[in-house]
Every structure is written in C-alpha cells, then in structure tokens.
C-alpha cells in the first residue's frame, strides 16, 4: 500500500499527560471514502487519539499528515477549516438556538471570514442552503424551527452530525455517535452513518460492535495507548492477538 492512498495518516503519534502515556507511537492510515472504526477497551486512548487528530489537544510527538502535509499542533479551528470535521461524545450543540441556526452557524464557518458586521447573516443564501442540505442529509428535515435543547436525545445526536456535515468536511471524525442511544435510535443512526460512509471518509470511535461491523470496512484496535492491529474487518475479526487482548475477555466488560 503506497502512502498516497491515505487522505489522513498518523505517524508515531504520541501524547503524554504528566507521566502518563495516553498515546504511544500510534501510526494509522485512513483511506479516502473508507469507513474506518477505532475500537478498544475504555482507557485505551481512543478519545485522546481523536482529540489529537482534530487539534483539540497538541501532540507530544509524531506527525499527523493530511493530504501529505503535517498538521500536528495546529489549533482545532484551523484543523476543521482544512476539512476534518468532528462530532463529540457528549452532545455538544447550542441548546438555546434553533436547530437550523445550529447548522447555519456551522455552514457559516466556511465563509472566508465571518468578520462581517453589516449584512444580516440570514441573507447569505449559500450558507443557508448548505445548512438545509446538512439537515436533510442527517434526517432532520422539518425540524429546523425547533429549539435544539427541546429536541429528543436522538435528534440532538443527529443534529450533532448535521452540524459536522454543514461544515462541508472531507473527513468525518465521529466520537461515539451512538453513545447513550436507545435501540431504535441506534438503528436509525447506523442507517444514517452507512449512508454517509458512501460519500465521506469516516473515522469512527464506537463501543457498539454490531454497529461497527455494520458500518466499517477497516478496523484499528487500540489497547493501553498503543495500536494493536489495523486492517480489513475480516482480518481483525479473526486475529488471534485481537481476540486475546480485546474481543475475547475484554468484551465481557460491556
């Protein structure tokens, strides 16, 4: 596999908190338009890895290559502008704004600059259209007028996805999109993510194995801050090392 296959790639990515090594020399490559899930037990360093990828934490060492350019250490707002959008494990929206305004704001972030003081934000047609499309893609058509904080939990999780889509990303980093969802809501979300996987590069951190197997083509397994194995779904499923370390007895923890 040549390097140019990867749209996003980490090399020896390391994060140390005080004396604690949260990520130790993690090297993973993400191919374009591939759904790539990162799994591992709690405390394996998945959240840290996501936060490093999206600039929410500065790495202690290593590289993050996006289309060949090193973006390690770039601030979060700059990373997302490059086209790496993310959703959050805990619902992270603007609860007092309308559903539409949440998305509109996300879409507005793609203007060259938002330091515009005189025209009403609503009059930027392209921004509003982009927001509408994102709502539609996330299955929230007809919900645009609702105050985000008053929607159901499942809908808020959908809004979370819609906001990422509205930023017109190339890579979607989704941090536990199914967290806290009921069975029906989960099924709905899995359908949505499968749909998105056809059009975007998806990086998915998720505990729900059924969902992971239904969505992802590639799996990376993290244990104790290191990458245990990375490869196609079937290879990981049948990997002895992975079964011992994680899928076997580790899975009983859930």
């Amino acid at each position: 596999m040549s390097q140019s296959d990867f749209i996003l790639e980490t090399k020896e990515l390391t994060k140390v908190f005080g004396g604690l090594v949260a990520n130790s020399a993690v090297s993973i490559g993400f191919k374009e338009r591939e759904a790539h899930a990162i799994i591992g037990p709690n405390g394996a360093g998945k959240s840290t890895f996501v936060n490093l990828l999206t600039g929410h934490l500065p790495p202690s060492g290593g590289q993050i290559l996006f289309k060949g350019a090193n973006i390690a250490g770039l601030a979060a707002h700059k990373v997302t502008r490059l086209g790496i959008g993310r959703s959050y494990q805990k619902t992270n929206i603007f609860p007092s704004f309308s559903c539409f305004e949440n998305c509109r704001l996300a879409a507005q972030s793609r203007l060259a600059s938002s330091m515009k003081f005189f025209r009403s934000a609503s009059s930027y047609k392209a921004v509003s259209e982009q927001a509408e499309h994102a709502l539609e893609a996330a299955g929230l058509t007809g919900r645009s007028g609702r105050v985000a904080g008053t929607m159901s939990y499942g809908e808020q999780r959908q809004l979370e996805i819609a906001m990422v889509l509205a930023t017109a990303p190339q890579v979607l980093v989704l941090d536990e999109p199914l967290a806290g969802m009921g069975k029906e809501e989960s099924e709905h979300m899995v359908g949505l993510l499968r749909d998105l996987a056809r059009r975007y590069t998806l990086i998915l951190v998720e505990h729900d194995m059924d969902a992971v197997f239904a969505i992802a083509q590639t799996l990376s397994v993290m244990v104790n801050g290191t990458l245990l194995e990375s490869g196609p779904l079937d290879q990981i499923r049948s990997s002895k090392a992975v079964q011992d370390a994680y899928l076997g007895d580790g899975a009983e923890a859930y």
Binding site: S96, R104, L105, S114, K116, F117, R119, S120, A121
Partner: peptide, 14 residues
Amino acid sequence: ASPFGRVLGAIGVN
C-alpha cells in the same frame, strides 16, 4: 444579526 454577531452569540452559549 450579522455573521460576526451570530458567532459572538454562539461563543456566549458554547
């Protein structure tokens, strides 16, 4: 109402 103001208001919320 401007793009600037919307961002500022959003900062106040989250």
